[in-house]
Nucleic acid binder design. Sequence first.
DNA 1: TATGAATGAGGATTCATTCAT
DNA 2: CATGAATGAATCCTCATTCAT
Lengths: 185, 185, 185, 185
Amino acid sequence: MVERIVDAAARVLEDVGYQHASTNRIAAAAGVSPGSVYQYFTGKDEIFAVVVERLGVRFAESIVPVLRRSALEDPATRTHTVIDAVLAALEAEARLLRALVDRIPTLEQQKAATAIRGRVGEMVYQSLASTPSALRHDDLDRTTWMIVELAQHLPVRYVLDQPPIAREAFIDDLAQIILGVAYVA
Amino acid sequence: MVERIVDAAARVLEDVGYQHASTNRIAAAAGVSPGSVYQYFTGKDEIFAVVVERLGVRFAESIVPVLRRSALEDPATRTHTVIDAVLAALEAEARLLRALVDRIPTLEQQKAATAIRGRVGEMVYQSLASTPSALRHDDLDRTTWMIVELAQHLPVRYVLDQPPIAREAFIDDLAQIILGVAYVA
Amino acid sequence: MVERIVDAAARVLEDVGYQHASTNRIAAAAGVSPGSVYQYFTGKDEIFAVVVERLGVRFAESIVPVLRRSALEDPATRTHTVIDAVLAALEAEARLLRALVDRIPTLEQQKAATAIRGRVGEMVYQSLASTPSALRHDDLDRTTWMIVELAQHLPVRYVLDQPPIAREAFIDDLAQIILGVAYVA
Amino acid sequence: MVERIVDAAARVLEDVGYQHASTNRIAAAAGVSPGSVYQYFTGKDEIFAVVVERLGVRFAESIVPVLRRSALEDPATRTHTVIDAVLAALEAEARLLRALVDRIPTLEQQKAATAIRGRVGEMVYQSLASTPSALRHDDLDRTTWMIVELAQHLPVRYVLDQPPIAREAFIDDLAQIILGVAYVA
DNA sequence: TATGAATGAGGATTCATTCAT
DNA sequence: CATGAATGAATCCTCATTCAT
């Protein structure tokens, strides 16, 4: 049931945007009565918080295996691989992503978004810490922040704005940037 | 009059966020009757579109002179200078920026945002085209897009998230990235 | 407009009772849009508070002149006269009274009711204090409280319950009670 | 089971008032499922009708023995005794009484309240009929009605409003009134 | 019989918008 | 032009009641 409501909420969000995603509309889309929604959620915003959370989980479930599988590759190859996976994961959710990124609503959900960033950040941090030899400088937090922002925002904008740039070219550029941030030439 | 309303809208937006920025509240804040708002704007969204547009104009008015003044500096210095100016311009509007970026509402305003990006993009394009010698590759559109995204998103996030990174360190990193994207080492 | 809404509220209250007197129904009965109600009242309860208040005012406007006019009559005659007026005033508002007394809603309105009692109480107190000679005892507050309760509750119940007692007989009995409470035989 | 529900309803009524005493809340307070409530009651109002009825029964169970025990006392003593008992019975239920009297809801329950009055009325009637010698007048129904209203309303208001009148003084006054109504001096 | 998830009509309230003055 | 009272559709949410298990 929670499932049904969250799915419906995501669908409605994609279709009409946050402003017009009323609880009644969501309930209708879920084939559920408005009252039922409140048996599982304290209110409208909690629904969307869960929508965002699930998106984060799906995203992580796409990326983490790739990170694991590519653990032994050299940094350059690995960065390519990971960016490709990130891009693919985002492309798979382009519509929802658009509704969420372009029309983010309340602070609560911002926190959720931040939480995702945090999780990715940790992975990046671990990864960097594990091969410290050639790091460009020793301020790991700083490097991590830059990489997370780069590896998150640029792919998102690439997927949402669909600039006239070839996918491979974009990945190349971004990989080079990230490698440049992390490691000495 | 348009002035008064737009200013009031920006103020209300900063104070209560998009969700609670009702037309009536804006009219009250502007010391104007609700009816009058509709003499100058077709509706609520148009007001905010103008708010965003003005923000873009102010931003451009801050940056363009710097771009002009620094036209003869070498790329490295110039990039530093410009990033510093961008950061300063964003910091000056942090509150409004937060209200806008964190709670963006409708597609219309997205277009406005995109318009800003477009303007900055043109400037970057010009700038790159004027010193073609050492460009890393000849796909100017692609390079421009990357730089605009980098030069816009990272400073915005830096201002809004206030990560524990020194201002100078951040500028250094971003400048290096952008230079790396644009020019061969 | 306030007039229209309050009148409609009283009418609706009489017809369907507090439980079913919704703001929308009141607005409809007033020939007014639901939104307009909130331009003049902060919410549902405030409307009913005003309904009660007006009832109190009308009641006072009926009784006070009688009290004044009968100031020089002897206590027995005067008591008769006043009870008769009270009864008449209550009879004129029997329907609203029934809706209000039988279905009193929130504490706020209780306060309003108490306020009325207070006003009547003062008048009784003054009246008693002006002819102290034959008072049964000197605890004026106590006597006042008893009389107010007697002079208010019994007529209200008489009007609402319509017991098989002749009007004159009831007035006689109540007058005798009140006189007995106030004065020595 | 009926027991459990009615008790819970009374408790909830005391705690949150009629407006917020929802069936679900009552069911929860009774440790019973909402559905079960409808196996024993036709609906919400019936629950409260029974609550009121039980209150009436408890009240009668307090008063009747006193009436019986005092049957041979002289009228003056007896009236004192009974009023004292009435007051005590009301004081024991002050919280529920307040919830009920101050926020009486539907006509159905009014009838229940009236039923209590009726029962007390009969007892008064019997009592008066048994000592007809000195009755003030021979309209027993009329006398009964007056006494019941006096003996019920004034103690209720005394308990709920807690006026600054000593308990003994109040009993004295009320006894004198009632005796005056019933018997010739 | 007991359950409790599901219901859905209805409630109070908001607010973008209009229009007579 | 400016006003601001009036609008009414739409919103979020509640809760008495039902019914499949």
